[in-house]
Design a protein around this nucleic acid. Structure first.
Length: 567
DNA sequence: GTTAGGG
DNA sequence: CCCTAAC
């Protein structure tokens, strides 16, 4: 039997060195016996994100290169109050922009890569141009804007976003909105910036062209799904561990600080695509870009208050790879590549962590989340890239993503295992490598590769939506259990929930478990739709009865051996 | 495929 | 509601 090595990336904050496009060393960690499918998506995504982020970092401050290797998260929040006359907000990027006059409170976001590229309505034009300068990408920009918008007809436009990844290491996102609450844009165009020709001289091309590696018999573990749910609110002391460890919807009402309905976990994409954020584009022609976001809870946001965020890199969770010791380095590279490729195809979402807590409610304002100009100590702000499900097909740039990003990632070229390999690739290499990654991340943030849509649906172990039991259902469940007992959930299902396709017998079993728990706690501690006390009494009674009955049966029932002997 | 239990 | 061990 061939022994396997498990390579783990990203744990304990492992990050790709700034000077390299890939890890210079990979530590052997543990051997995982299970084949899990999703976790690594996030891992590799973050891996890639970190690559890009660190590349950016590298060019930014070469003197700090030595430290970058071990910096997991370098997110800082800078307080910056923009006055009304701030040119950042007022410089129009296009004379055709009918919205250049209206400005909403802006949030400047500088990050490794991020953007809003979306247009669920109407025709979608995609033009993405990466421009190189002497073989090195000085800037990559995706601009999303609407044209031919007729004021009065379209009350609102989606955010126009410019993402530029320049040699100055900053990826800047500019998205300004007019604050209109509703409406839609009819057209979206992505184009390379044409107001800075010196930076845009050609299309980004993959450095190498090679087929997407096969998975073959290699086993790549992806276990983001389960871990993902677990990352939640473990700190909620008053919540039951097995509840609060999962999703936000387990959070108790009183833990919410405002009456905002919890959303589906993976709806951040659709949120961005929807009209939740009435943004209006107002990019200016300079390289500096600004993201202006004004939530519907406009009352929370003063025009004068802004926070400036800078994301130097995304966190890199774990990536597990199991590979035989006899495997070649090249095969390992391909393995990583496969994981990366798969991940990229599934789309990316952006996760936000504020002071250790994951913020999943996209409808929150920054202020509500705790990101305000007054909170200058937000050193625990964290962004992450993570797999995302998408509800609205977004064919934007799919070909680009598949042909470029998936085939030309730094990891595929680097010697992952050789810690002595040249860790200072040429700038050109870095830049070339950066572009596909960054663009992929950028695109995937808001779009999903259509090619992988099916795969995504298939692979993404999507969690079923929460469907609280109604009192009627509880009634039926109690009645069935009273009759059938607590150990025959299949029968309970058949007898009482035959037509309820969304209720599996496991669900019923779980519900009974919670019912027993609910009945045992004080009414003040109960959440959700109140269950009539009489029903809860019946729950306890039935539970006690069947517990006794089962134990009684075990005690009085003659051993099988005796029964067999009698026969 | 079911059941039971931890998460 | 998810995941899994153990039937």
């Amino acid at each position: 039997m061939v022994s396997h090595k498990v390579l783990e990336f990203g744990d304990d904050g492992y990050q790709l060195p700034a000077k390299a496009r890939a890890p210079r060393s990979v530590r052997k960690r543990r051997i995982y016996e299970k084949l899990i499918s999703e976790d690594e998506k996030m891992c590799a995504i973050d891996l890639l994100a970190t690559v890009a982020g660190n590349l950016l970092l590298e060019t930014e401050s070469s003197v700090n290169a030595g430290q970058d290797n071990c910096v997991a998260v370098q997110n800082t929040v800078k307080k910056e109050v923009l006055d009304e006359g701030n040119p950042v907000k007022s410089v129009p990027f296009s004379q055709d922009n009918p919205y250049q006059g209206s400005l909403s409170p802006c949030v400047d976001v500088q990050c490794g890569f991020s953007s809003v590229i979306t247009n669920p309505n109407g025709k979608v034009e995609n033009e993405v141009e990466g421009f190189s300068k002497l073989g090195c990408i000085d800037s990559f920009e995706v601009r999303n804007f609407s044209k031919d918008l007729k004021p009065g007809v379209n009350d609102e436009v989606k955010p126009d976003v410019v993402v530029s990844i320049g040699s100055n290491s900053s990826t800047e996102v500019r998205a300004c909105g007019n604050g209109s609450p509703h409406g839609s844009r009819d057209d979206v165009n992505l184009y390379g910036r044409d107001d800075d020709d010196e930076k845009f001289s050609g299309y980004i091309r993959p450095r190498v062209t090679r087929p997407v590696p096969r998975v073959g018999d290699r086993r790549i573990r992806k276990i983001w799904a389960s871990r993902h749910w677990k990352g939640g609110s473990r700190n909620n002391a008053d919540a039951k561990p097995w509840y609060c460890s999962k999703r936000n919807y387990y959070l108790h009402h009183h833990q919410r600080h405002y009456p905002v309905k919890k959303r589906k976990y993976f709806d951040n994409i659709s949120d961005s695509n929807s009209d939740d954020y009435p943004l209006q584009a107002k990019a200016h022609k300079g390289s500096k870009t600004t993201s202006s976001m004004k939530s519907r809870n406009a009352s929370f946001v003063s025009r004068d208050h802004h926070v400036r965020l800078r994301i130097k890199s995304f966190r890199v969770p774990e990536l597990f790879i199991e590979i035989p010791e006899t495997a070649t380095v090249g095969s390992l590279k391909r393995m990583v590549m496969e994981a990366v490729t798969t991940i990229l195809g599934d789309g990316l979402g952006v996760g936000l962590m504020v002071q250790g807590k994951k913020v999943r409610d996209d409808s929150k304002t920054l202020l509500q989340t705790g990101i305000s100009e007054e909170n200058t100590h937000l050193d625990s702000l964290g962004f992450s890239l993570e797999p995302s499900l998408e509800t609205t097909p977004q064919p934007l740039l799919s070909s680009y993503l598949s042909e470029y990003a998936c085939d030309d990632l730094p990891l595929s070229r680097d010697n992952v295992l050789d810690s002595n390999h040249d860790s200072a690739p040429s700038p050109a290499d870095d830049c070339r490598a950066l572009v596909p990654i960054a663009s992929a991340a950028v695109l995937a943030t808001q779009t999903t590769h259509r090619k992988f849509k099916r795969t995504e649906q298939h692979q993404a172990a999507h969690r079923r939506i929460r469907r609280p039991f109604s009192v009627t259902e509880v009634e039926a469940l109690v009645q069935a259990v009273e009759k059938l007992g607590t150990g025959r959930w299949r029968d309970v299902k058949v007898h009482a929930f035959e037509d309820a396709d969304h209720r599996t017998y496991v669900d019923l079993k779980d519900k009974w478990k919670t019912l027993v728990h609910t009945a045992r706690i004080s009414p003040q501690q109960r959440r959700g739709e109140p269950v009539p006390q009489d029903l809860l009494d019946r729950v306890l009674k039935a539970h006690a009865y069947w517990s006794q009955h089962q134990m009684h049966q075990l005690q009085i029932e003659p051993p099988p051996s005796q029964a067999d002997a009698l026969i």
